[in-house]
Simulated scan of single mutants.
Amino acid sequence: MYLEKLLGALGNYRKIALVTHRHADADAVGCASVIKEVLESRGYSALIVCPEGVSKEARPLIQCQRALPDDIDAVVLVDVASLAQVPEIKKPLVILDHHKVGDQLPGLRLERPSCSELALEIALEAGVKPSRDALIAAALGIYEDTGGLLRADERTFELLKYAVSEVGPLERYLRREEDASLKMAKLKGLLRTSAYRTSRGILCITNVGAHEGAVAELLISAGCDIAIVISKRKDEVRIFLRSGSIDVADLAAKIASRLGGRGGGHMGASAIVLREGDPQEIARHILTYIDPKASALS
């Protein structure tokens, strides 16, 4: 079912690049690694491209090139909700993504806790047993993208069991110590946080230069009902949204539309990418949009 839809979208294209979102995380890497082996089992030529490289946590899992070769027939966007998450690509595009909201392209978009489990579903359907390295990447991708399995459902656990039965306990591969940059991002994020009482609960807004998702998760664990982390990059502004109580995928899409950007993701975790903007002005706009009567917590 899923395999047929993916291969149908590829049509007669044979040389395929699997392109992840910028700064690929473990879930993007795990998903791409499994799908690469599935495509190769069906006679395709496939390679993985990770624009801006991969996160520090995912580096041991893959050797990934950053530039898209010219001789590629088509591109499969892996774990990409919005085209704003990748550089401009002038090749036919197919989507393989697990986010509820995002740009509509041919291929497969299915709401699941992680992209890696979607890839494992496709591998099982194709009768392909992924390599040990691909299974390790997929298992870690599932663990990471489900918030340590907090967002996992019954099928997630079944697929994780399949992977772990082949590679052994995940503690062998998990990094237990946070690197210095992650610790600094979390501390800066906390120090810069402004909290507001809104009609939708406690809203926390902060800004950091890296590890935005981890900072957003930290704010949620600290008691925020909605966490928004804004990151100013050289050529864009990234906004990460997390919540356990409201649909931030829908919220991200609406805010992105108002601000002239692109947004999408899961009900509990989503993102917006803008080409430009001042983080403080963006924060004020978001706060007003969510609740014009919001009041600062003292």
Rank of each mutant, 00 (worst) to 15 (best):
G8H: 07
L10K: 05
G11H: 02
Y13G: 06
R14Q: 08
I16K: 01
I16N: 03
H23P: 00
D25N: 14
I35D: 08
I35G: 06
K36Y: 00
G43W: 00
L47C: 09
G53V: 03
E57A: 15
E57K: 13
E57L: 15
A58L: 05
P60G: 11
I62A: 10
C64F: 06
A67W: 00
V76E: 04
L77V: 12
D79Y: 01
I95P: 03
D97K: 09
H99N: 14
Q104H: 01
C115I: 05
A119L: 04
L120H: 05
E121M: 10
E121L: 11
A123D: 14
L124C: 06
A126T: 09
G127P: 13
V128Q: 08
K129D: 10
K129C: 02
A139G: 12
Y143M: 11
A152M: 08
L160F: 03
V167E: 08
P169I: 03
R172F: 06
R176D: 06
A185H: 09
K186I: 06
K188Y: 00
K188D: 08
L191I: 02
T193P: 06
A195G: 12
A195R: 12
T206P: 04
N207M: 08
V208L: 04
G209K: 08
A210L: 10
H211D: 10
L219W: 04
A222S: 15
V229T: 14
K232M: 13
R233Y: 03
R238Y: 07
G244W: 00
D247S: 00
D247H: 00
D250M: 02
I255D: 07
R258I: 12
L259K: 12
L259W: 12
G263I: 15
G265V: 10
H266M: 09
A269K: 11
S270P: 14
I272G: 14
L287Y: 08
T288I: 06
I290E: 04
P292L: 11
A296Y: 05
